[in-house]
């Protein structure tokens, strides 16, 4: 089959669909979980409903970040990425979409866990809402780390110039996208679980907030080691095989 620039257009559309389609799944799941926990909390403690609804909206906004990253890459692929190039560039556009889409699943689900725990805790102990919300937001910010790695790799794949049709470089581009995309899922989901339990602990006994936040941050940092390895492998593959 003859290579034409139409294939780059195909790759841009396909990559854009992958990016926002898969990324939306994680965010939506996380936000739905927050809303579920908020409804439960309001049913138990109707007097605190305004506090709970506020917490729900703030934590849902953080959970939405992952989906917005997917949307951003999708828009870049549709309107910003170059429309001519070889097979290597075409593959790297699809890989960019895969990387961002899959990389956002974990962050969406994980920050949903943390936000749900915040709503539940505030429903139980409305007086502690400031402390609980602060810990939740710190935890959710760390949960986004893997997703941000995926955004960086995805931008490199979509925007760096790559030439030629070398099949070796084609493999390297798919490998880079796959490595960072899937590498970010585990860290995202599980650091959200860490934040959830830290928030829960904070609502039990706010005097131990310092040691809980410290343990949460330490645990989340160690849990991100795998995502950092994926980032390194993705960088090596992108920069040593640009075709």
């Amino acid at each position: 089959m003859e290579w034409t620039n139409d294939w780059i257009l195909v790759a841009r559309f396909f990559g854009a669909a992958l990016a926002v389609g898969i990324a939306a799944f994680g965010s939506a799941y996380g936000e739905g979980y927050i809303a579920l926990k908020a409804s439960e909390a309001i049913a138990r403690q109707p007097k605190a409903s305004s506090e709970i609804v506020r917490t729900m909206l703030i934590t849902q906004a953080v959970s939405e970040t992952a989906g917005i990253f997917g949307l951003l890459i999708s828009i870049i692929l549709l309107f910003v990425a170059k429309s001519e190039g070889g097979a290597v560039f075409g593959t790297s556009l699809v890989a960019a979409g895969l990387c961002m889409g899959v990389g956002a699943i974990g962050a969406g689900i994980g920050s949903g866990q943390a936000g749900g725990a915040a709503c539940e805790s505030i429903g139980r102990y409305p007086k502690l809402s400031a402390n609980v919300l602060l810990t939740t937001l710190v935890g959710q910010a760390i949960v986004q780390t893997g997703c941000i790695f995926a955004l960086v790799v995805s931008m490199l794949l979509a925007l760096l110039t790559k030439e030629g049709h070398n099949i070796v470089a084609v493999g390297a581009m798919v490998g880079a996208g796959w490595s960072m995309g899937f590498g970010a899922i585990g860290a995202g989901i599980s650091t959200g679980f860490t934040a959830k339990n830290a928030v829960w602990g904070m609502s039990r006994d706010s005097s131990i907030g310092g040691v809980l936040t410290r343990t949460m941050l330490l645990g989340q940092a160690v849990a991100h080691a795998g995502a950092i390895y994926s980032l390194i492998i993705a960088f090596i593959l992108v920069f040593s095989n640009r075709g």
């Binding site: 899937f182 590498g183 970010a184 860290a187 679980f193 849990a223």
Partner: peptide, 14 residues
Amino acid sequence: MGMGALGPGLGEGF
């Protein structure tokens, strides 16, 4: 590396 980072990531956070 992509699949290999899934398991440790999940387990360590839990």
